[in-house]
């Protein structure tokens, strides 16, 4: 009797296990696709930030190409239920995100440098202009002296 019950339970377990494995696989695929989607959005946010920080159009264009490739992988992963495409999309999105962050940092540094240079130059030019205005009469004197020296030499 006990043997029969055990056998019955064994058969039921065997019948259920493929269903449970299928469900786990489907869950795994869905999780992978969700991760790929989240990574793609994160990469887009990073690229947009780099763009707003002043990255060059060529850099943004190249990052956009990578995002579009990651998007096509993600669409394939959703359509085919493929973990391979989901992983490819995830990898590409993560690398685009890292690259965008480095581009954003460089753009930010360049902006700070440009602004610092421009305003420093403005202050220096301000000093120079003030000096020129105040000492203009001396320049006239120097010019007159040079002219006199030339006349004497002739």
């Amino acid at each position: 009797m006990r043997f029969r019950i055990a056998a019955l339970l064994g058969i039921i377990t065997l019948c259920i296990s493929p269903l449970s494995i299928d469900r786990q696989e489907a869950y795994g695929q869905s999780t992978q696709v969700d991760s790929a989607r989240a990574a793609l959005v994160q990469a887009f946010v990073s690229v947009q930030e780099a763009d707003l920080e002043g990255a060059s159009p060529a850099q943004i264009s190249q990052l956009a190409d990578n995002l579009n490739l990651a998007l096509s992988y993600e669409e394939n992963a959703t359509r085919l239920g493929s973990n391979f495409y989901a992983n490819q999309s995830l990898k590409l999105s993560n690398s685009a995100s890292l690259e965008a962050q480095s581009v954003a940092n460089a753009a930010r540094a360049q902006t700070v440098f440009d602004q610092g240079s421009a305003y420093s130059l403005s202050v220096v030019a301000g000093f120079g202009s003030a000096l020129l205005v105040l000492e203009f009469h001396r320049l006239n004197d120097i010019a007159r002296k040079i002219r006199v020296r030339r006349i004497r030499l002739e």
Binding site: A118, Y119, L121, S122, V123, A125, G126, F127, S129, A130, L131, V133, L134
Partner: peptide, 18 residues
């Protein structure tokens, strides 16, 4: 004083251009 005032004025003008 004139030099400082002139420098400040020129700097403001150039900074605005920048």
């Amino acid at each position: 004083i004139v030099f400082i005032l002139l420098s400040a004025s020129f700097s403001v003008v150039y900074s605005s251009i920048a």
